[in-house]
Computed example of a mutant assay.
Amino acid sequence: MSTASTETTLASPAATVRVIASPQSWVEGEAVRQLEAVARLPGMKAAVGLPDLHPGKGAPVGAAFTSEGLFYPYLVGNDIGCGMGLWDVGMLARKSKAERWASKLEVEGPWNGDVEGFLAEEGVKPSGFEGALGTVGGGNHFAELQRVDAVHDARAFAELGLEADRLLLLVHSGSRGLGEAILRAHVDRHAAGGLVADSDEARAYLTRHDHAVAWARANRALVARRVLDGIGAPARRVLDVCHNSVTPRREDGALRWLHRKGAAPADEGPVVIPGSRGALSYLVAPVGDGTGSAYSLAHGAGRKWTRTAARERIKERFTAESLTRTSFKSHVVCENKDLLFEEAPQAYKAIDRVVTDLVEAGLVKVVATLAPVLTYKTRSREE
């Protein structure tokens, strides 16, 4: 299904449904159906699908929702705090040694440093899941060294303290088992039901949620440190945003709850919207007041094929070895063959189209495009 930006009002409870996608973009009918189903939940005020909208488990990914009076933890999902951080690496791109790094770099297993000291530096309390702290995780998570492909807005680029000849590091990861445990505790008690905002249970969930968001941010920072230690370079964190969360927001004189399920914030400054490991990533700056997009942006290209379909289709056309290099001549570290096929570039939508939709909708301006040099997924043969 190809859909233009649409807006519909459903039967009570009245919730506005909007899909921000041009006629040139592919949006599955099932994803729109899920979006409309969420809009029918009690208390819902708006359901917005971004250009990377695709079906999820019960609720679509690449979407943002606002509610009043209650909120829904299952819309946040199990990877609470999942997001992306960008680091300015103190190394010239021309000095990168991608092939050597690909053969040696390892970001697996418990970190052997001072975990408690590191968390204290980040202002985060331990969670009991520190064995996974500083690891990328499975699925679409990654750590990617990048070079600047082109600068499109020199002033905005310079304001971030960036230079076009240096490497960058983009880390996409979340709260690992911590978020899963928090969601499981909620689902065991409430299934997909919501929580009345002014209740003890809601306050308890939000306390755990906020801890997971902070822990996930620390996790990305430690993944970055391990990668940087591996290549022998210093770095500066440029930005870090969360795309799986629920947060309070005062709107039209009422307290509402903004759920993001695979949606980058449009109210926290510049963000990176990555493509697949074989495509450009886009550093963009939000424009406008964000009201028409639930203060949210696409968080990536969005899946075109399910994982099962990707394995079946891509195994017929490519060998695992061929997928460890990309059209950018970048290297991919992924020793789990199933994951290598599931996350192949062909399984994703075209990131250029996703970002163009955001630009044409008046939501972002492109600051720079970033090309992959080395994408790290996992050394493990099992997820």
Rank of each mutant, 00 (worst) to 15 (best):
S5N: 15
P13A: 00
I20Y: 00
R33D: 13
A37E: 15
V38P: 01
L41Y: 09
M44Y: 01
A47F: 06
G49Y: 05
A59E: 05
Y74V: 14
Y74T: 14
G85E: 10
M91K: 11
K95T: 06
K97C: 11
A102W: 02
K104I: 08
E106V: 15
G109D: 03
W111N: 12
E116N: 14
E121W: 12
G123L: 12
V124M: 08
K125W: 11
G128H: 00
L133G: 02
T135I: 04
A143C: 03
R147E: 10
R147Y: 10
R147I: 09
V151W: 01
A154L: 08
L167G: 02
S173Q: 05
S173D: 05
L183E: 00
D188C: 14
V196E: 12
A197D: 06
D200Y: 01
R203Y: 07
L206F: 08
L206K: 10
L206G: 02
A218Q: 05
L222E: 12
L228Y: 02
D240K: 13
N244A: 04
P248A: 01
R249K: 07
G253Q: 05
A263H: 04
R277Q: 10
V287F: 11
Y295T: 11
K304A: 09
R307K: 07
A310G: 04
R311T: 04
R317L: 04
T319C: 10
T326A: 13
H331S: 15
N336K: 11
L339W: 00
E342R: 10
E343D: 07
E343N: 06
D357M: 14
K365Q: 12
V367N: 03
T378H: 01
R379W: 06
R381L: 09
R381S: 06
E382S: 14
